[in-house]
Amino acid sequence: MRLLWFALLTGCAAYQPGSFNDGQPFGGQRLTLGCIDLAIERRVDLTDAAVLDYQFGNRCTTPAPIDLASVVVVGRTRGGQERRLAPYDPDRQLQTLQLDGRRSGREAIAYPSKEWLAQLCVDAGSLVQATTPQWACVGEVMP
């Protein structure tokens, strides 16, 4: 019975392809990469890390990979220097997961940096394990 309720509730919340909305609109830069509708938004930085909000919905009816463990993120300092950033993952939980068909999800990932980063650029292609890179850049957010 619990499963029936689960299915009924989730059925009402099926992701609609191209909507960039799973009950809450996806904020930030929007891209479509294969089966995945993706939005990347930069949040107000933590004291020692920049934070990116990833929101994604699966347009297809079959599962598609979301690889937040190896997504390539590059930070640009105000001086124009580039820094390759690694996600803050103290318990090593990040891994490639399959996003089920017509499902959506969101994750906020922190990228520690000792320098103030004016811009973060994400290879969205690496997030969905695409063969060709697709860069999306987001500027800093004032508190």
Binding site: L3, L4, A7, T10, L46, V51, P63, I66, L68, P87, Y88, D89, P90, D91, Q93, L94, Q95, L97, Q98, L99, D100, R103, S104, G105, R106, E107, A108, I109, A110
Partner: peptide, 26 residues
């Protein structure tokens, strides 16, 4: 906090849980 690594209640990848289950129907 809802930021991964800072949050304490929700593990990473809750959104990917259904793909790990077999296809069930009622």
């Amino acid at each position: 906090s809802d930021v991964h690594g800072y949050r304490t209640c929700t593990p990473f990848g809750k959104w990917g849980r259904s793909a790990r289950w077999p296809s069930l129907f009622v």
